[in-house]
Design a binder for these strands. Structure first.
Lengths: 233, 233
DNA sequence: GTCTATAAATAGATAGAC
DNA sequence: GTCTATCTATTTATAGAC
């Protein structure tokens, strides 16, 4: 497997990841990928067979890296509190290390995983299962109060993907001089999420697990939010 | 402006919103929209001029509805704590009332607002500005501790969009029998976010604003997360 | 306002020389 | 492994009859 002037397969892989992240699967043309990679379009089909297989390879690599880390954390011997903290740190640092991940995953969520294969979907499920296992362990040992695992998952994953994926739209808005977004770094995000997770998961030191909502009681509302929207009841 | 058998403009508008939400801007064909709306394809161009203008109209209507509500909340005379709570409730209930909103907005964030006009981007900025004003007011009155506004915004908006936008991918994963997702309703989400916001924003009753991280200290890590990935510093 | 027919451009993918 | 040339299908959009 010689690697001359420049490994064309790798060049395609990285150019495609950047294009898919910036424009989405169907808006990205193979011509564009080839031009960006500096290779001939036919090489994409030589190496990957189709645009979809190329895309799937990219997504799978991304989610595999995340699941590998979160699984190791869940299976470790640290306490549940530290495991949650490590989960957050792992997820954020993966998002930071692979700038293409957040936009691609946001789109894939929005699209219902339509472009993915069953194996990759299972890997994605595995990331959630890692957190689920940690939360269950915390329940067993009494370290955590009862929380909804999916909501906890979304409260870690959602802000992280929004934060790292929103760079371009923040720039676009900034150029309109409407708002000045204060700068944020990954360390601040990790710190924020850790605090949030700890405060949400650990029993309140001054009372029951569900403290009174200080000054944030429910308001009377005019709009009706009666019907549940389908499957999430 | 007579509305006979069925207003074709409205039919197109709603069919397009559903298609754009499910497949994204470029993966959605005008043929598909027309078929779903039960009208002729030429009617799309008669009413909207182009696929992009149709898309922009849809997005603008969505974000305008949100900004109208959040602005009114920020300008109201309730206390900051209640305003944050109302902001959360407004955002969640808009996401629930318009099922097309979360996927469309997730994609638009991922794409950097590429398909949007400046006016719509400004409206999006206005939603954030509503929360920003509330947070500043809370700082002035001493009700809130110092938090990063953008992180707070993402921690409300991110989980909400993930929650409502992830229905299809959860179904896809569920069909693989890998994980059973526990059911969640919007009320639980609102409750969860409210608690999260209150605990993050209000000064700790038992000490300084930044409590010790109970069992969640930083771990030594082997992976390096040194370089900042470009524009998000 | 609504339809048919079609223009014009671009997409993903392949054949085959080298 | 890499390139040129091309096939085929699909896409946005429009012209023009009714």
């Amino acid at each position: 497997m010689p690697r001359e002037a420049r490994d064309s397969r790798r060049a395609i892989f990285e150019a495609a990841a950047a294009e898919f992240a910036a424009r989405g699967f169907s808006a990205t043309g193979v011509d564009r990928i080839a031009r960006r990679a500096g290779v001939n379009k036919a090489m994409i089909y030589y190496h990957f067979g189709s645009k979809q297989r190329l895309y799937r390879d990219i997504v799978r690599e991304i989610v595999l890296a995340i699941r590998t880390r979160t699984r190791a954390i869940a299976a470790g011997d640290a306490g549940p509190g530290r495991k949650v903290s490590s989960f957050i740190e792992a997820f954020v640092s993966e998002a930071q290390a692979r700038p293409h991940m957040p936009p691609i995953m946001m789109r894939e969520v929005a699209e219902g995983g339509r472009h993915l294969d069953a194996g990759t979907l299972r890997v994605i499920a595995g990331v959630f299962e890692s957190l689920l296992a940690i939360l269950k362990e915390g329940r067993r040992t009494g370290a955590f109060i009862r929380v909804h695992p999916l909501l906890m998952y979304f409260t870690i994953v959602g802000p992280t993907m929004m934060f790292f994926g929103s760079g371009p739209i923040r720039s676009a808005i900034l150029s309109l001089a409407a708002v000045g977004f204060p700068e944020v770094g990954p360390e601040l995000l990790i710190e924020h999420l850790r605090k949030m997770a700890v405060r949400t998961l650990t029993p309140s030191p001054h009372g029951a697990g569900t403290p009174a909502r200080a000054g944030a009681g429910p308001r009377s509302r005019s709009r009706s939010a009666t019907t549940s929207s389908g499957d999430q009841a």
